[in-house]
């Protein structure tokens, strides 16, 4: 029995109306992603990779074509339903972290749980568990501006994982970090992947893409190549993954899974 695909894109096209006709940012893109894959989307600036990521993240709708997330055709969903899908199925990591500045680290991490209508008590315990997992438990009460770039991105990762998403979308997650910190973040993502979370990472850096299992290359809005590779081993680092919290979307809340 074949497993249900996490992502199934069929003829995805996204065009933007312009003063003189329209601009097609993405043209007839089709691919599928199986659960547990670690995929990178490569492409030059303006190639359409971010447009694709926005479509995958249900932040945007295709002009034509279908996008199925875990079997659900997102074209049929209204705004509220799309929001629910984003909340329950997708975790976002951004290049510029996008943490809410006046809120504490813990409040930032638990933000998706607010919209999942999780009771406050459960939210806090789960948020703390995630912060523990990314090694920032002690910073729970800090504000984002008191953290380093790497710490901010770890908080963002904790936030992305807090509602146990099936799919983690990362948009240039190391773009604002130095190479050493970037590597730490990548190691963390690898560990998350090993816990069964499907990851799609947008990058323009081929070196980073080689740490993933599959590279989708977008060129001028079209899918240029789709190659499966053997991921390169990551350089050894300090980060310990043994205490990583159960982040798999299929893990029952509250159960610890030892990798």
């Amino acid at each position: 029995m074949s497993r249900e695909k996490i992502v199934e894109a069929v003829g995805l096209t996204r065009a933007f109306p312009m003063a003189d006709g329209e601009f097609v940012a993405l043209r007839d893109v089709s691919f599928a992603i199986e659960p547990g894959e670690f995929v990178s989307i490569m492409g030059a600036s303006g190639s359409g990779k971010s447009t694709l990521l926005n479509l995958l993240g249900c932040l945007d709708r295709p002009t034509s074509g279908h996008l199925r997330l875990r079997g659900t055709d997102t074209r049929e969903l209204d705004d509220a339903h799309l929001s629910r899908v984003r909340n329950s199925t997708i975790g976002f990591i951004f290049q510029s972290f996008n943490l809410i500045a006046p809120a504490t680290v813990l409040t930032n991490v638990t933000l998706p749980l607010v919209y999942a209508r999780t009771p406050r008590k459960d939210r806090n315990s789960r948020g703390m568990a995630l912060l523990r997992a990314v090694g920032l438990e002690a910073k729970a009460a800090s504000r984002p501006n008191q953290l380093s770039g790497g710490q901010c991105q770890r908080v963002a990762i904790a936030r992305a994982l807090v509602n146990r998403p099936a799919l983690l979308l990362a948009d240039e997650p190391t773009g604002n970090l130095d190479s050493r910190t970037g590597m730490e973040i990548l190691r963390l993502m690898r560990a998350i992947h090993e816990h069964g979370v499907t990851i799609v990472m947008v990058t323009h850096d081929l070196k980073l893409a080689h740490f993933t299992q599959r590279i989708l290359t977008i060129h001028d809005g079209e899918l240029d190549a789709d190659e499966r590779i053997t991921p390169e081993p990551l350089p050894q680092g300090e980060i310990s993954l043994a205490d990583l919290y159960p982040i798999r979307h299929d893990a029952a809340p509250g159960t610890e899974v030892t990798p």
Partner: peptide, 16 residues
């Protein structure tokens, strides 16, 4: 504005 974008990405509906 950016906070609103983040909240929307995290699953906030328009109503939220």
């Amino acid at each position: 504005t950016r906070e609103i974008g983040v909240r929307r990405a995290m699953g906030a509906t328009q109503m939220d």
